[in-house]
């Protein structure tokens, strides 16, 4: 019966490393048994009482325990975590709520398989600014602008550290350069009654943009019939609606809108796409009695209303 006695700890090793584990204070030539996640390890991996793991890989992460041969006392236990040092993190900073502040978000280009810690520093001139970390997502933080219209660049440095190494990325940018609104919201497109070539499009400023009156947005509308690949574009310097007047009659359209601060920064991503088809005249199913007599006298009409058609034309009152 195995007795747990020895303190266990976590041991981090790089993928591909050779790992040697001693059985706590036991001599080299002591009789011991090693287990990995509770399974005995065969002697081929032992050098005396030392456990030798060659060119470890991710699958060899786990709990390793060493028991004294006769008493089965646990003499050593460790949790082996096989991983890699962090690569240079990818960092992006953006202001989607100008002029309130900006956020930075980051991620690692590839997993490390072991825990990482992130530290971000934001320097503006000689001043270090606080980046308030979001609870969720964990890889994002916010900075409030203390100054506006500054020619001094911002310098953001993100350092990622784990037990096997450290890496960092630095971004330097101007205040205006990172301003990028969120896409417009509540985009709606509607046909215009009695206008077979018009579509009325409306939208709202992104709710994240705090003061559209003092910091107005301009918009870019793109639209095309589903049957074509070529978009048509129109830029609108103010207002949150537009009437498309050159739509192909009867064709379903796909429409998107983007936004940009009137004076600085870059365009938002495209909004969610909406679909609409211009107004079309109601097909006339029934022709009145007069028209029937006319058609029979002038030509042998090919149109024969199907016996089930419900005659709905109020004026003529023909058959119902």
């Amino acid at each position: 019966q195995r007795h747990s006695q020895q303190d266990s700890h976590i041991q981090y090793e790089r993928v591909g490393a050779d790992v040697t584990m001693k059985c706590g204070s036991m001599d080299w030539d002591a009789a011991v048994t090693w287990t990995a996640n509770g399974t005995d390890i065969d002697d081929s991996h032992l050098n005396g009482s030392y456990l030798i793991l060659k060119n470890v890989d991710l699958t060899q992460s786990g709990q390793y325990s060493c028991y004294e041969g006769s008493s089965w006392h646990l003499k050593y236990q460790t949790y082996l975590r096989v991983g890699v040092p962090p690569k240079e993190p990818l960092l992006t900073c953006r202001s989607n709520n100008y002029p309130k502040g900006f956020y930075c978000v980051w991620h690692l280009p590839s997993p490390t398989y072991i825990p990482n810690s992130f530290n971000i520093s934001v320097i503006h001139g000689t001043r270090e600014m606080v980046c308030e970390k979001d609870i969720f997502p964990k890889n994002r933080c916010h900075i409030r602008y203390l100054q506006l219209f500054s020619t001094v660049k911002y310098k953001v440095t993100l350092t990622v550290t784990n037990a096997l190494g450290k890496s960092s990325t630095t971004l330097t940018f101007d205040e205006f350069a990172i301003v990028k609104p969120d896409p417009p919201e509540f985009v709606v497109a509607k046909p215009v009654p009695n206008n077979p070539r018009r579509l009325e499009v409306s939208w709202q400023n992104p709710s994240s943009w705090p003061d559209p009156e003092s910091f107005p947005l301009k918009f870019f509308l793109r639209y095309r019939p589903l049957i074509l690949d070529q978009w048509q574009h129109v830029e609108l310097s103010d207002g949150t609606s537009h009437t498309i007047t050159d739509a192909y009659a009867g064709k379903e359209y796909i429409i998107q809108v983007a936004a940009k601060d009137n004076d600085i920064g870059t365009w938002s991503d495209w909004s969610v796409a909406v679909h609409a088809t211009p107004w079309t005249e109601e097909p006339k199913h029934l022709t009145t009695e007069v028209q029937i007599t006319e058609t029979t006298s002038t030509s042998t009409s090919s149109f024969m209303p199907p016996p089930t058609t419900k005659i709905c034309d109020k004026g003529a009152g023909v058959g119902s």
């Binding site: 219209f149 020619t151 003092s214 107005p216 600085i264």
Partner: peptide
Amino acid sequence: LRELAQWAVRSVRDLRQLAK
């Protein structure tokens, strides 16, 4: 010139606030 470019943007914002 760099400061002037920033001032021009600031002035646009200032005047919008005033117009409001």
